[in-house]
Structures are given as structure tokens and as C-alpha cells.
Design a protein around this nucleic acid. Structure first.
Lengths: 257, 257
DNA sequence: ATCTGTCTTCCGTCAGGTGGAAGGGGTGTT
DNA sequence: AACACCCCTTCCACCTGACGGAAGACAGAT
């Protein structure tokens, strides 16, 4: 969906442990179930090596075999993931605030964190009546075109900002900002105002507004609401609510280290 | 909290990959943030080896360093865990049904799967007014004393049942069943009736009723509702709702492979 | 200033990772 | 029936890359 810092020639890592991790990397949202041969090809190792690696992961619980003999990510990984402070930990602190926001608006409410030059969605509450969004929990996306992404990018280390600005900006709709200079000005405005608005930059019928979740002065996540609309005015009524909820989440996270 | 098949002497695994996985195992619900020295001690390797292992995991995203220099489970693990069919996949299918059940009852609604001789909680909806439960999403627990556990155990392979029955049954309250013969009779009754009731077996003031989530004839999870009470009658009104929701989840899971 | 804990880097040795080859089982084709 | 194909599993001799002791940097406490 977007750039991946781990991308590169298969089996670029020649260490034993690296290959084990590369096996896990072979599983994606698009291909969540793989045969041993699939894995061997993806990782770039002979079948016998792949077999040994997978057997080791299987014994540990990192992968499981389904009834068809294909491998899938195992429960052990999910269980460990529940310990990730930026994953389930953040989600547990945020969910009550997100539910409050959803109760009031019945629109999409999203929480995301930054990982490198991508964002990762940590939680999403989507009503049936709300406008369709193409994101899923655990999914990655580019930073610049989304509300949450603009907030996360605006408060990212300078090197990250420069890296994103140096690369060509992908256009999703005719409203997507693809000029680095304009993006620079918007990021400055996001820092000044404390909120980011993304007007139809991902899909032609959705506008979002996002606010930073701050813990002890640093931005750890971003909260947004996505509504159907065709101008920044569509989200104006929601700005105070999103800001307040984002502040609440930050305060809650600070309490649970 | 309960037995762990992976338990054993530290660094029982002498392979390179095994140690890498052992590093991840060092993180638990009780100790989610570790120093390098902690990890080296837990895994049973010299500091220099631990340093190399952790550096590899860190580069991959499996662990992250917080501002104090301690290590925590990284976002990448959580992201991968989102691909686990028995983790987030199951949770996404189940959440709407769980929310419906919660709307109607405003009691604790829990979803769990079996892993070996333990159960793992996949999702929980807990209202502020509901009776307190000591479980968390991603947490493990013993099978016999809980409603979900009884369902999962009743439909587990015979070898698993025998293994659990052969071990001494831990008593949490004076209502906890600790006699293997009685547990055997209860499991037969659970299979016959399609529901399991746990009467104050974990805490002295809570009763739960659970039903199996079946996909193509095999039980993949269990759904339960936990209410304050002092006899099986406390949950009787909820039995039809729990059964219906569990069936709905099974049907939904079958649609999304 | 010293001590005690932390982490980081280096490099010679040798354990254990590697992958080719051989074999087994299932399913679809001639 | 025999064949072709794809999938997986096991074995073992070579040799690569994992190992860990040692030395040192760094920070905070006494």
C-alpha cells in the first residue's frame, strides 16, 4: 500500500534469526495463509531451510497450520502483540474516548500511530451509516494524505519529515496534495493550530479532521473523525470533540505506563 | 497465571532462532518493559549475546526502546498479530455480535480460544456497572474454572482433556470444582446441553454462562457472559442470547476464511 | 573520587545452520 | 495404471556466521 523500510531483495538478511523474522514478514494482509513453498520462495531459501525455520516457529506458536496444511500467523504472536504499548495498550486507553465520540457523531473514528514514514491504524470504530473508509486495524498507509498522517508527520522528527518530502507524493484523488512546498506550509499550520484537516485526499467523498494525542509533551498517536463531505466545512463542528477526546486519551496513557 | 508448555529451564533452546524467540517470551503482562540485563538473565545468555539478539529484533521492529532505555514489545509484533486468524480476525467477526449482547445486558461479554491446556481471551466488553473480572484481552487462564474454558475443554481433543484431568485442579474459591470425576460429568453435560455454567468458581460473586462458537462442525472459540450472582439461576435469562450470538459469530467466521 | 550498575564493541573459536539430495504422499492427467 | 506435478519431510557433511569472554564507555549513586 505504501513504502516499506523492510522491503528489499529477498533474504537480504543472511543471519539465522533474520531469516526466522523474514518468514513472519512473508505473511501480509493480502496473503495471510501460505504454503511452505510460498514461504521458501518469499524468504529466498531452499525448501529444507524453510521447513526447519517454520518448524521452529510452529513449535513456538508463531505460526499455525490450518486444516488445508497452509501456515497462518499463530496466536502466540497476537498474544505478544497485546503487550505492545503502542498497540493494544494504547487501544485500551483510547477506546472509551473513541466510543464517546462515536456515540455523539456516529461517524468513523480512527486512531493511528506513526512507524517510520508510514502510519499504522491501531483502532477504528465504523458505523454502518458512516462513509466508507478503506483502512483496517493493523493496516499501514502513507502519512501525507490522511488527517491522522498529517498530525503525525507534523510532529515527527525533522529527518522523517524531510524523507517524506523528498519522495514523490502519491496522488489518490485530484485533491491530494502532491506539491512538497504546499505540504510544508500545511504541516506548519497543523503545528500552529493543533488540528489537521484532510479534504478528499484519499477518497473523493470523505473529509477528516485529526488531533494529536500528547503524552508528556510528545505526540504518540493521532485521533481523527472521517465524514462524508466536499469541503473542510464538513468537519468544522467536530473539531472541538476530536481535540477534547485526543487530550483525554493522552492523559489516560500518561497514567498507565 | 497458569501452566505454560513453553516453561522450562532458561535457554533450553540452543538454536539461534530459538533464542531470538526466547527474548520475546521474556516479555509478559507483569513485566512488559525490560532492560537488556533483564533479558539476558531471563533468556540465560551472556550480555553480549543478548545485545546482538535484541539489536536484531529492534531493527526488525519486534522490540522498541522507550525513553528510559528499556525495551518493550514493538509495533511490528502487534501488526503481525493482527493477521492471526484466531486473534484479530476472530475478534473482527465477533465484535458486532458481542456489542449487540452488551447493549441488551450491560454485563461482561467475553470471547476466548483454547491454546494447549490454557485459554486466551480474545476480546472483552466490560461495562463500568458490570461485575469485576480479573481478565484482560491477550491474557491466559486455566480452562476448568471458567465458563468459556469448560466449553473449550468439553470440545477439545481427548488427549487435552486427559492432560487437564490428570493434573491437580487449582481451587480459586470454595465453589471451584477440584474433583476430576465431577469435572468429567460436567464436561459430558456441557457437550449434551451446548452451554456451560460456571458458578462462582473464579470469584465468589460472579456466575458465567458460555456457548461454543462452531465453524464447520468444530469448536474454534467460546463466548460467555459474566454476571454478579450466587447461583446458576443468575445466568438463566442470558442463555438464549449467548447461544444465539455464538452461533452468529460462527456463521460469520465461516464466511471470512 | 569511587563504586555499581547500565550498555556497547571487538574478535578468535567452533557449534550449529545450511542446502543438496533422496524419498513419500496426495491429486489431477493421459 | 502409469505418469506428471506439487507439496512436504528427513538426512548429513561442509563451513559459515553465531558465540561469549574481555575491555571499555557511560550514568547515577555514595
Amino acid at each position: 500500500m505504501t513504502s516499506d523500510p523492510r522491503a528489499g531483495p529477498p533474504a537480504a538478511r543472511r543471519t539465522a534469526g533474520g531469516k526466522l523474522l523474514a518468514v513472519l514478514d512473508a505473511f501480509t494482509r493480502e496473503r495471510p495463509a501460505l504454503t511452505l513453498s510460498d514461504i521458501a520462495r518469499d524468504v529466498g531459501v531452499p525448501l529444507s531451510t524453510a521447513h526447519r525455520l517454520v518448524a521452529e516457529l510452529c513449535a513456538w506458536g508463531g505460526v499455525e497450520r490450518d486444516e488445508d496444511g497452509r501456515y497462518r500467523v499463530g496466536l502466540r504472536v497476537w498474544e505478544l502483540g497485546a503487550l505492545a504499548p503502542r498497540g493494544l495498550g494504547l487501544r485500551e486507553a483510547a477506546l472509551p474516548f473513541m466510543e464517546d465520540l462515536y456515540e455523539v457523531t456516529h461517524e468513523n473514528v480512527q486512531l493511528a500511530v506513526r512507524d517510520g514514514t508510514d502510519l499504522v491504524f491501531v483502532e477504528r470504530i465504523a458505523g454502518r451509516s458512516a462513509v466508507g473508509v478503506l483502512t483496517r486495524v493493523g493496516g499501514r498507509f502513507a502519512l501525507p494524505p490522511t488527517g491522522v498522517g498529517l498530525v503525525l508527520l507534523a510532529h515527527a522528527p525533522l529527518e522523517v519529515q524531510e524523507e517524506v518530502l523528498a519522495r514523490p507524493l502519491v496522488g489518490y484523488t485530484r485533491h491530494t496534495i502532491t506539491d512538497p512546498g504546499q505540504l510544508r506550509r500545511i504541516l506548519a499550520e497543523v503545528r500552529r493550530s493543533g488540528v489537521a484537516v484532510s479534504d478528499r485526499q484519499v477518497t473523493g467523498d470523505a473529509v477528516s479532521v485529526a488531533a494529536p494525542v500528547e503524552v508528556r509533551g510528545s505526540v504518540v498517536a493521532a485521533l481523527s473523525i472521517v465524514v462524508r463531505g466536499s469541503s473542510p466545512a464538513a468537519v468544522r463542528p467536530y473539531i472541538p470533540g476530536v481535540r477534547a477526546a485526543a487530550r483525554g486519551i493522552g492523559r489516560m496513557v500518561a497514567l498507565t505506563p
